[in-house]
């Protein structure tokens, strides 16, 4: 078990290197030039006024004139020493920016995942044990329908409904959860609910098919035959086994969920990691983009590792070497 975890963590290193190379190269092959931000919004017009020499100096001060391999080497050393430099645009260390944005995104992601599980698992089980009844059809239409709706549109419709019918909009200002939990909740409940319903659509489908498969197993028939109540059979024998594929999907959902969080942060103007990332990308803020993407990749790999380890807890037959 320990050696398995250590080996998996060691495998993180080449993967993270690849992620960093991919991002590093992607940012630099395009026509976008980060010095544009320093020239302000009127970059097109003022460009002629700024001399080429000044631009060169600016590039040099940002180490953008070095060979790409040298740039990469410098950056890797910086990241390993946990000092990923300053943001081009905001004139403050990347680490501070990330630290201020991270709690919000983690809060949204965790609450969403928990809520999605709470919605999806019962729905999937009910749908399976009442297969081909009206409730099963209703739940299946619900889940396949929500799968098809793009999340930003669901968000827009939710805002429209809350505005038109309840005359309510989320508060403009964002308060951190330890500052003012009530305000925090007011701002976040709607995006979290939308994300959770969206994720639960996928999970409920997996839960349904997993439960259907387990219900056909011999040991479930035995459990019924020895006179256990349906509740006991489900809770002791069915749900635990049906959860295995669901956990896998929940892990895969992590990457998709981050995409959703990013869009929700944009739509509801929440200053989280996704919001920071989009604004960094649109302004060519290389240090911010690089660090945030590496960090997200790292989190996603950790989640996948945790998912694999959970298998062992749920199913003692699975052993790791």
């Amino acid at each position: 078990m320990q050696t398995y975890i250590i080996r998996r963590i060691l495998l993180f290193i080449p993967t993270l290197f690849l992620v960093s190379i991919v991002v590093f190269v992607l940012l630099r092959i395009g026509p976008g030039d980060p010095v544009d931000i320093f020239l302000g919004d009127a970059a097109e017009g003022t460009r002629a006024l700024v001399s080429q020499r000044e631009l060169q100096e600016l590039r040099a001060s940002l180490h953008l004139d070095d060979n790409i391999v040298v740039q990469y080497g410098k950056w890797v050393v910086d990241v390993f020493t946990l000092n990923p430099g300053d943001s081009f645009r905001l004139n403050s260390p990347v680490l501070d920016q990330v630290k201020s944005a991270l709690p919000l995104t983690i809060e949204i992601a965790l609450v969403t995942m928990a809520l999605a599980m709470l919605i999806a698992v019962p729905l999937g089980v009910i749908s399976a044990i009442r297969q081909d009844t009206w409730i099963d059809y209703l739940l299946r239409i619900f889940s396949i329908g929500f799968l098809a709706m793009p999340i930003f549109w669901t968000g827009l419709v939710a805002i429209l409904i809350s505005l038109e019918f309840f005359n309510w909009i989320p508060p403009i200002e964002y308060k951190e959860i330890w500052e003012d939990p009530v305000e925090n909740f007011k701002k976040l409940w709607l995006p979290i609910l939308i994300l959770a319903i969206n994720s639960s659509a996928v999970i409920a489908r997996m839960m349904r098919s997993g439960t259907l498969e387990i219900l056909r197993q011999d040991y479930v028939r035995t459990a019924y035959a020895k006179g256990l109540s349906e509740r006991l059979v489900l809770s002791r024998h069915v749900i635990k086994n049906a959860m295995l594929p669901v956990i896998t999907v929940a892990g895969l959902q992590a990457a998709i969920l981050f995409g959703g969080v990013l869009i929700m942060e944009q739509l509801f103007v929440l200053p989280g990691i996704g919001f920071k990332l989009v604004s960094s990308i649109t302004t060519d803020d290389f240090p911010m983009i690089q660090f945030i993407v590496i960090m997200i990749a790292f989190f996603i790999m950790i989640i996948n590792l945790l998912v694999d380890l959970t298998y062992g807890l749920l199913d003692p037959r699975i052993r790791y070497q």
């Binding site: 993967t15 993270l16 690849l18 990457a255 981050f258 993407v293 997200i296 990749a297 996603i300």
Partner: peptide
């Protein structure tokens, strides 16, 4: 390589 590539969310 595929692992690394897939660790970056599609949208990002």
């Amino acid at each position: 390589i595929v692992d690394g590539w897939m660790a970056i969310p599609a949208l990002v």
